[in-house]
Write a protein that binds this DNA or RNA. Sequence first.
DNA 1: CGGCGCATGTAACTTGTTACATGATTCC
DNA 2: GGAATCATGTAACAAGTTACATGCGCCG
Lengths: 192, 192
Amino acid sequence: MRQTDYVILGLLAEQPLSGYQIKKLVDIRFKFFWSESFGQIFPALKSLAAEGLAEECAQEHTGGRAAKTYQITPAGREALVAWLGQPVEKESLRLEILLKTYFSNYAAPEVMLGHLAAFEQSHAQQLHILGLFQKELERIPDDDENHREVLRVIDFGQKVNMAYLDWCRETRDYFEQKQARLREAQDQPDKK
Amino acid sequence: MRQTDYVILGLLAEQPLSGYQIKKLVDIRFKFFWSESFGQIFPALKSLAAEGLAEECAQEHTGGRAAKTYQITPAGREALVAWLGQPVEKESLRLEILLKTYFSNYAAPEVMLGHLAAFEQSHAQQLHILGLFQKELERIPDDDENHREVLRVIDFGQKVNMAYLDWCRETRDYFEQKQARLREAQDQPDKK
DNA sequence: CGGCGCATGTAACTTGTTACATGATTCC
DNA sequence: GGAATCATGTAACAAGTTACATGCGCCG
């Protein structure tokens, strides 16, 4: 069983969904810490159905092609709970910007300033979206009784993105100073 | 050209290295934001040599099998600088613990408390190691003139890991309270 | 009827991990 | 000579992305 399978089971545990809807939910709700593509979701749904952890239900079609909707089975719920109890094993972080920062003495400070601006903008945006989610969750009724847990996840995103932005500002300052130092050295090559 | 190629070029830009040494450096220096395996490094070194971006030099052997050492070529340096100037494109974060937190209303609070303890311990450890690196860097002479950039990378790790630990503590509190609520409800099932 | 939007599905590719086979040296 | 250590290399697998092919209904 892949991680994708459990993501799907978790979402189906709340309500029946189609592959397309699952993709949209993952893109919105898990955006800052997870992703899935169609190439993973559709095969996973098929295998979940083959193993009896999910089953096809009604074919709704609200405009456009009919959507194959799946619902979770009791065995699927058991599998989900069993997975929740297993130790967390996957944690991965890959940040090209840190690689470039590490090697940045081979490039001009301007280069890093550009990368930092893009990074900062993207994470400020993410933080903004998380804030909207938080307000939305606090506003609507907690029918599934999972709002508090979801808020914990959102809080993680907020803390981490704020840390990213802090780092951005400090690092921007650093490269701006470096740039100023270099300019000075160029303008007055004799002094020292 | 893969990301692995640039990681290798960046490390070779400082000094000639063997595949084995590269792996060790990545494991130590980039541990908290990057990883590479032998299965990526050795083929990458071969292809870098084929493209003339790196070349084999002396076969040193300091105990054990002879190490094939590679050094960067001028073309390799150019490729590295060109990559540094390209926009940052890869940023990925995958945290199973957030997935489990999101779905945690299907499990007992104890389960999450266990996961949180492991997560907290692992990141406290990482933070500790980053502190050691920082002190080490501030102590030794900055021969390659890249200490300040490396310290920016370390600072990122420290900020992010501190954010993780803050979240851990708050989330631990939340699940402990939830646990207490459940216990209370079980002890006095009549009240309300 | 043509294009757009919703939706499913797959094949090809890229990337990354794991496990294994091998080789050479040192130390006991 | 055997274990430990340092080191290279590969094959098999697992995971993940991308691009494409298809289908259907609606709207102008």
